[in-house]
Nucleic acid binder design. Sequence first.
DNA 1: CCAATTGCCGAAACCGGTTTCGGAAATGAG
DNA 2: CTCATTTCCGAAACCGGTTTCGGCAATTGG
Lengths: 368, 368
Amino acid sequence: MTKAIHDHEEGRAQPGRVTITALSAALGLSKSTVSRALNGYPDISERTRLRVRRGAETMGYRPLSHAQAIRTGRVRALGLVVQIGDHDAQRPFLADFLAGISVAASAEGWTLTVATADSEADAVRTMEQLVEDRKADGFILPRTLSHDARVALLRARDVPFVMFGRTADPEGCAWFDMLGEEAMRDAVLHLAGLGHRRIAFVNGGTAYNYSRLRLQGYREGLAQAGLPEDLALIRGGALNTADGTRETLALLTLAEPPTAVVFAVDHAALGLYRACAGLGLAVGRDVSVISYDGVPDGAHVEPPLSSFTVDTRAAGQRLAELLIARIRGAAPETLRETARAAFADRGSAGPPRLSSEALSKRLATATT
Amino acid sequence: MTKAIHDHEEGRAQPGRVTITALSAALGLSKSTVSRALNGYPDISERTRLRVRRGAETMGYRPLSHAQAIRTGRVRALGLVVQIGDHDAQRPFLADFLAGISVAASAEGWTLTVATADSEADAVRTMEQLVEDRKADGFILPRTLSHDARVALLRARDVPFVMFGRTADPEGCAWFDMLGEEAMRDAVLHLAGLGHRRIAFVNGGTAYNYSRLRLQGYREGLAQAGLPEDLALIRGGALNTADGTRETLALLTLAEPPTAVVFAVDHAALGLYRACAGLGLAVGRDVSVISYDGVPDGAHVEPPLSSFTVDTRAAGQRLAELLIARIRGAAPETLRETARAAFADRGSAGPPRLSSEALSKRLATATT
DNA sequence: CCAATTGCCGAAACCGGTTTCGGAAATGAG
DNA sequence: CTCATTTCCGAAACCGGTTTCGGCAATTGG
């Protein structure tokens, strides 16, 4: 009679599960002793602790995280809010990123709660919900902005988080990041070493913090190579192939066009291929290009795109490990790591066949 | 003194949260009455139920799912185990798929628990863990196989699930699926209508259930167009661009090559572009192609790939809705839906410029 | 040798919900 | 008007854990 509207066959405790009560009974101990033994309280003798551990092992006892959560407030879940349509470059990485997080999380018995959002404001709202409903104990923040509303929220609410990327104000922030600036610097040095004198730079989205750093790396490279900085050769806001094509055309129609271009984003670099194809230029010979990300598509163009590749899976894994440490109480200052991107030299960068002047002349005749 | 090893500042009930006890006190009712009122029990008067609803609304009461779960066994979370490295085609869809699921789930106050696996066996193990730890109340199964170990597990454990795709044995299965067979049939009819007489088919992975259906659709198209079936024109196992290039070359070097090719998978179809480029053939003129999936990359080749596009986001959304209904007790037989893929005619399929014989002859001269 | 600690564990309260059970009041039948 | 049903709600048990509190035994200090 007294029955919920939506009734399934559920509701009763499942038979197989061994609870802490069953375990304590089997061991002849009280629930509280078992609980404290397993959670590392100091007022349990080493002998008992060991006995409890072994008993739990053999009986296959696994505490239900949501039963623990009711008292502790922690559900042993990491949170990730993915911003959709943010920019296309994010997508190919997602599966690998998730794989890395998932592997690190499950190694510690944690899980991953994923939500999506279609704007930064929406992301903040979504995270707020997840925190409110205690669906995650902390968050991984991909694509950190220079001034990030998500960081502000989490700081205010005192929710643990780890950024994939660094930020302007490091106060209370933990992070893992790739050294994009070093990659850009090395790209310039590599091209300069091949003999290029006019090396352009096409940056990604300006709001992202990485853009600032990569531009800085490009400049550092020029300086170390003893090359002058030409503002006409620095462009930005290129996130996808169409953007890349546009920026390439703008660069090549300059009075003194570059003979090599460094891109901050692979997908934009792929646009250079299309621009060159339209102009009858050979990539890697007439125009050289080096980029950053290591997207799979880059291997399928001709010549394959030379790029600093990021191990997204490893990044996800490390981020999850850092976040778990953070949730367990480690100070954010001790949880800051960076890694280098590996240069995959695949042939899109070679010695300049034409000088800037010759290139300019050839383009003038080609387009008329 | 008595303190856990890893102590953060957490542990106490957060101040802002309004519990069911607080709500019931404010209403002058008992906890049990409030609980039953909100959960639709019939032994609560309509007047009281309304009063409770309003009170909950104004006080901002939101039950903690994990507190409910301790008794009900349900955590209001959907589960998704993504198979990594399964095949590349899956990746670009992932973000949209997640977005769809996420949106439908959060509309009902549910969340999404994601894990990854690198094989089917691993996926089964992972799902078992999630069920065991009650991290998900049910699962969405992407990429259904004809004989799926995941289905066997979930059936045995009586865990609700919904498939993205159909399966050989529909017993107890709910699903949402795209009518790939109709798309393949229509592709053949479209090409036949343009004048093509020799139309090849390159299928995807044979283990997937969709492959069986799409092949069937191709055959149906031939039959309806009154064209003979030539086994030499039917190939399979092409999942990525390299596969597609290989299969295209195999087809074009036949004594009687096809003038048009239908692909079951966009990424494989992109391989045809590379094969044609190598052979000096113009896609859409010398060789026509129609494919299936609607991946973004298809829009960036020349001419853009004509493809039956799948609205992955909508699929994810519908799947989540179906799964929630299933978890709430709806019979699986009532939760089976299909949708058509929309044909995006972008120019890679045109009337045959060369006959099969002429094409063969031209290829013979080109390669020597 | 006695008092004060210390080490170790059990009893019980608690977390925030759900569900069972029983009883008072209202309703209907005779 | 009485008695049997309903209708509707409260008290209390319960879910599976964690944490507080207190007590007994063994140790230490003087």
